[in-house]
Design a protein around this nucleic acid. Sequence first.
DNA 1: GTCCAGGATCGGA
DNA 2: TCCGATCATGGA
Length: 281
Amino acid sequence: MKYQVRGGHIYLFDLFDLSATLQCGQCFRWEAAGENRWQGVAFGRQLTLRQSADTIIFENTSPEDFLQIWAPYFDLYTDYGQMHRQLCQNPLLRDILLSCAGTPAQGLHILRQDPWEALCSFILSQNNNIPRIQKIIRSLCALFGEEIAPGAFSFPSYQQLAGLSLEDLAPIRSGFRAKYILDAAKKLCRSAPSLQEIQEASLPDARFLLRQIKGVGPKVAECALLYGFHRLEAFPMDVWMFRAMASLFPGAGPQDFGGLAGVAQQYIYHYSRQNPHLFSV
DNA sequence: GTCCAGGATCGGA
DNA sequence: TCCGATCATGGA
């Protein structure tokens, strides 16, 4: 990881791409704040980012937070070139990965989000569209999170949400999903299951534990595992992925993509969203 | 009005 | 085990 501290900003020199990473449906708390500029909150801190070519500017953070919070969050310590080469050894993936070369898609990272935030966010995502998911989460944070900067709110903990009622959650307009996040918050408070237990479990056991929570089915569990627990083998399948898999890799499944299947999934998902005309019903 | 959205649950075949 | 209806909500 190459970076410089200069004039109160931090300059990162990397192929890491903000738009590909923040717009590929793995996170919901980053908003465009002008041309190639993003603003968001994670781990109780607000950050503004700007991208110009292969330089990313962290505008309002300290070197300490950059190294301890943001570098892990954006998975900057991982060599994505190496991961890319490893995926290319799979003949199924070779073409689609080579087509990423020189494009923003090559700089797509899997974020290391807070496990609870990822789980809760993807419970709210079910049968919903991305703009409205973002709106619901914004509202959830504004109502029940802490104001960490003017107009910026942290994601509420499950301990905070566990004490709420359905009526309390009504203003966020999450519909039938409200009862699911209350069930999740309460079960985590009772350690049934606990986040640490899921963290330490084998992948099949982690899937089973997550699905003890109401509203967590196969898709939400895979999303929580990939985006919240950084299990790179987890492989979320939504309607876009079903279409893309049927079209690009007929007959193939997650098991054909090995231990980095989740990373491959992210490239495929990004590809299908960037080229929707190739995958029309 | 109808359809759809990074789905899961429930009841009935 | 599999399948269809249903679930809230809001934008297209």
